[in-house]
Design a protein around this nucleic acid. Structure first.
Lengths: 141, 141
DNA sequence: TTAATTCATACTATTATAGTAGGATTTCGA
DNA sequence: TCGAAATCCTACTATAATAGTATGAATTAA
């Protein structure tokens, strides 16, 4: 499974942007300080967020990043998938040597991991960026 | 997040054991061949499964492993947690330098990861080993 | 007694993560 | 106009974890 700091950082940074929505571009330096994430690492993450059109950049002094889409419309899954490759628990989908390549009995647990993936993805699909900034509130299940 | 081949192998191997339940001990060599997992690696995994009393060992020739508990009573979560340390998406629980150590604004996304953990764990709690061996059947959600 | 097995421990190759480093480019504001 | 603040771009790297290997000892059925 792949859910690393990169994915977490991306969500944290996007939540940070959402909090400062409407107040002009937010610099990565600020986010870096507030969220305690290395600046250079943030830069790499934001390249990808920008590629996916989740944020818009403003170059030069007083520049920074702004949300391209409103927090109500951004799903957590959009953020995660922008920076991580994907959420997949299985190795055995691509026809590899290891995994469920058994000719006779096919991978007994194949369904299980399939459904776990769906389970996790559906979680990320349900939660919106907006849900995070409504503070101290239980996320909708 | 931690869901590695070790966890997957453990579930696969336990499912294998469940399929051969009542037919005497199953050797790791057999499981190794059927599931295409390195024997020495399986040995390490089974040490842990045994420590958690999920399986029972029979030493010597014609030996092997047997389920200690019936498949209806073994949750996938039992297996995963026996071999992996735990399923945790957060780094920021233990008072570390990185993560949500911000004094003023506490980690905005803390709740999110918390709930994701619960979400995933509840999935593994619901599914029993028995559910896997009932073949080609949709697992109960 | 031998082969098949678990048990135990130490070592290791590979890979991915999580960064660092260094510089180029753009643009605001004094 | 110029410097500082910012994004952009690419290459490199330390660390740690995963996923195994390797080796041998102990046990037991046949």
């Amino acid at each position: 499974m792949k859910l690393t700091t990169k994915g977490r950082y991306a969500v944290m940074a996007m939540a940070d942007l959402a909090l400062f929505k409407g107040k002009g571009p937010v610099s990565l330096t600020d986010i870096s300080l507030r969220q305690n994430i290395s600046l250079a690492y943030l830069e790499q993450i934001f390249i990808k967020l920008k590629q996916e059109n989740l944020v818009k950049s403003v170059r030069g002094a007083k520049g920074g990043y702004v949300l391209e889409v409103s927090p109500e419309e951004i799903k957590i899954s959009n953020i995660i998938s922008a920076v991580d490759e994907e959420i997949k628990t299985l190795n055995c989908k691509k026809e590899s040597k290891k995994g469920c390549n058994n000719k006779s009995s096919k991978c007994i647990t194949h369904n299980l991991w399939d459904q776990l993936d769906q389970h996790i993805n559906s979680f990320f699909e349900k939660v919106k960026l907006q849900d995070l900034v409504k503070k101290n509130q239980t996320l909708n299940k």
